[in-house]
Design a protein around this nucleic acid. Sequence first.
DNA 1: CTAAATAAATAGGTTGCCTACCTAATCAAA
DNA 2: TTTGATTAGGTAGGCAACCTATTTATTTAG
Lengths: 154, 154
Amino acid sequence: MDEWKYENAPQLRDLFSRFAKSDWRKLTRWSIKASEVRLLLAIKESHGSCSDAGGMTVSDLSKLLQVTSPTVTQMINNLIKNDYVIRSIHPGDRRVAEITLTDKGEQIAQEAGELFTQLFNGLIDHLGKEQSDQLIALLEQVFQYFEQVGKEQL
Amino acid sequence: MDEWKYENAPQLRDLFSRFAKSDWRKLTRWSIKASEVRLLLAIKESHGSCSDAGGMTVSDLSKLLQVTSPTVTQMINNLIKNDYVIRSIHPGDRRVAEITLTDKGEQIAQEAGELFTQLFNGLIDHLGKEQSDQLIALLEQVFQYFEQVGKEQL
DNA sequence: CTAAATAAATAGGTTGCCTACCTAATCAAA
DNA sequence: TTTGATTAGGTAGGCAACCTATTTATTTAG
């Protein structure tokens, strides 16, 4: 009885395996690392929605990208070296670094934003609006499930 | 008009980002690397379906796991060192290494197989049979889309 | 027999993180 | 004001998961 219910589990696993292996985030075309592109994009997108003209902090970026702050620091160091971002000290709290995009960094972030927008708009076209909404609903549940399982593992 | 169509693209991207960041394959509990567990499992699952009692070749594993053969070799070297697999020369073609599981390796593969089966059966429970079938159909299309985009990038 | 193709191994490299630990600055309590 | 605790970020080293370049040995094809 239950065997019929789980007949597609292997297929599901195969699919998720294939997904794990491919990473759309690697679909980039710039001379910097994919992770660094994501950081530039994160700065641009948050800066845009932030009414005060300051930059991003390391902690903010760390939370947003879900990586540790030393990871962010090291990315930033490399991006500074190649003139994509600028680091300055926050006037009100000297512990805090403010990270802002240079024009060069802005350019890449802009392009990356467009690329990803195009990518996911294309996916919606490919699936159709209704199906893509459905996919969202389903994936939310999948994510929830994996998170729950992850917790139980600890 | 089209803007309404793409209103959920950011959400889709966010979801895919979260998925990219988490990796169910890491949900393991053994003292070897997740990638190595996968290799052991691949051996067990293919060996089971293979009517001749020989082991797996490096090429086979490479194709199955979608990694290069040097990657497989190095994994195997480590697994040999820790007594999870045995390498022998194929009697009919001395270029070919045959990789078989030790009892120890068999044990881990067995457990991993059960863990993943449980994981995906649990997902089907979580979603319901109908929804999980739907997810499969949708993900097939998503995968198709990303593959196509990946090709166009080159 | 010889050259090309094949299978696998070795070595070195990159990316994407993480942890351990440290310094400097800020905050809170005495 | 001083002191201890907390916070923010930086540095260094390490690991996992691959990849590429190259080499060696074996097999195949002409």
